[in-house]
Amino acid sequence: MSSRSLFLAVLLREFKISLTQKTDIATIFFFFLIVASLFPFAVGPDTGSLRTVGPGVVWVAALLSSLLALHRMFEGDFIDGSLEQFLLSGEPLVLIVVSKIFAHWLFTTLPIVILSPFVGMQFGISSEASWIMALTLLIGTPVLSLIGSVGAALTLGVRSGAALTALLILPLYIPVLIFGVGGTVAALQGVETTGHFSILLAFLCLSLALCPLATSAALKIALE
């Protein structure tokens, strides 16, 4: 089977499964909305301070929502024996893993990215800077899913795995967060943002090259 048709087969499978778990996806979506909406209550209605914290708040809310969804990535397939069948498919596990991570990002995080500029405007961020922020999220959140997949795979079958994943993964999210928020702040101040985007894209390339390999190795260990 060609790599492309395997990638699409896994993607279609994940899509069908996601369709039956719409409430899970809606939960993540509304979690993002509520976390982001809590801050104006805490910080107060002052436009200046809201605009200052806005990019950081939206990014952290997106990061936490992505984290909330992580444990779903492999747990179901681990519990019901699908992972064993993946290993016997005779196809490279790493390709199946890439497809699963992409599907996971597509169905849980992309809706948040699409919504983010509107949440940004709620913080008084100009529409232009809001679109820049959405773009940093579009590049940055796949990195979060890729790094997160390693943590999700490593904690399979472990008690309170979701909390452990968070502890393992959150420190690794820091660089992505810094440059994601940095890009948006630069856009707000009217400064050149190319540097931030270059670094975010470099993170994406690096994690795309390394994380799926680590994740599939971790999955094989989980099945031993």
């Binding site: 499978r13 069908k16 019901d80 699908s82 069948q85 498919s89 196809e91 199946i96």
Partner: peptide, 21 residues
């Protein structure tokens, strides 16, 4: 059994056989 509870038998088989190539 590597079956997804929310999918029908047919959907399950289509999904797993296509991944198995």
């Amino acid at each position: 059994d590597a079956l997804k509870g929310n999918l029908t038998a047919e959907e399950n088989l289509i999904a797993s056989l296509s991944v198995m190539g």
